[in-house]
């Protein structure tokens, strides 16, 4: 077949298959297929959670992997986010003499938005990628088939513990991130910028309601669930050896992060209403 670009461009079949509209449509179709498969996986996992046996040891192991091992990353991220947020907002409020609001703004931003989202993004980078890599490797080396032949449902054995771990551990990490982020804001405001510690603490305490914190934790639970599902989904659908595992791992982080950010908007809207 002649491969020249002019030959191709005069071939109606080629134009039909490669114009931007077709390509976009095909992409869209592929994404909606994936979305449908993810929904199916959620449904299967929901059923599998209640089927015996309960794999407590597996769940604990994943909690350690997703939760405990993410503590340093999450705390450092949150500490510095609180610090830089205080730095910026103090500077901004200083322009019209409202420095006393810094504590409130830092607290609200951390608990409602920054702690849940940044924690989930860090866990997506750490844990969702690891899930995709581990399950993907099992897929391409026939270990998933082996599970089937040993009469074990991979959704029950692999997906459920990871999703539960995300659902439970991401809110706990977020609670820790709330605390450390607010401490970071306090340290910068009071020790570095010389704000009045009493005013700062009061501004934080009296204007932040329980619901701000709880709403943030609810969001974190949904994000944790989503990144677990996406990590497992990318793992289970891995094809094509080592290269495929690499692609799944990258894909898991990208899709999990996007899911977190998109879901964040809708959840915030719902929680505000």
């Amino acid at each position: 077949m002649p491969g020249g670009i002019m030959d191709k461009l005069s071939d109606p079949q080629f134009i039909l298959e490669h114009n931007i509209l077709t390509v976009l449509l095909r992409r869209g179709l592929a994404y909606s297929t994936q979305l449908g498969e993810i929904v199916m996986l959620i449904r299967k996992s929901a059923v599998a959670i209640f089927r015996r046996p309960l794999d407590l040891a597996l769940i604990v192991r994943q909690m350690e992997e997703v939760g405990y091992n993410s503590i340093p990353v999450v705390l450092i991220t949150s500490l510095f986010t609180g610090m830089v947020f205080a730095l910026n907002s103090y500077e901004g409020f200083h322009r019209f003499g409202a420095e006393s609001l810094t504590g409130t703004v830092v607290g609200l931003a951390i608990t409602r938005e920054l702690a849940p989202v940044l924690t989930s993004l860090m866990v997506a980078g750490r844990a969702a990628s690891a899930m995709a890599a581990e399950i993907g490797t099992m897929k391409v080396t026939e270990q998933i088939d082996a599970l089937h032949t040993l009469a074990t449902d991979p959704v029950k054995y692999l997906v459920v513990p990871r999703v539960l771990a995300g659902l439970v551990m991401v809110p706990i990490l977020t609670a820790a991130a709330d605390f450390v982020g607010i401490i970071g804001g306090y340290l910068v405001s009071v020790k570095l910028l010389g704000a009045n510690p009493y005013v700062y603490v009061n501004a934080t305490k009296s204007f932040i309601e329980n619901w701000d914190i709880i709403g943030g934790l609810i969001k974190a639970a949904v994000f944790g669930f989503l990144l677990g599902i996406v990590g497992c989904y990318k793992g289970l659908t891995t094809e094509g050896g080592a290269e495929g595992v690499g692609k799944s791992t990258t894909g898991a982080v990208v899709i999990a992060s996007m899911c977190v950010l998109i879901a964040d908007f809708f959840l915030t809207k719902i929680l505000l209403d």
Partner: peptide, 28 residues
């Protein structure tokens, strides 16, 4: 799953679970 308990399968690459030792694999 009921049917599969009547089967044993040896995979081409053995497909042992690499997160487990031999005992856990065989006793899975």
């Amino acid at each position: 799953n009921r049917l599969r308990r009547r089967f044993g399968m040896l995979f081409q690459g053995a497909a042992l679970f690499d997160s487990m030792n031999v005992e856990e694999n065989v006793g899975f």
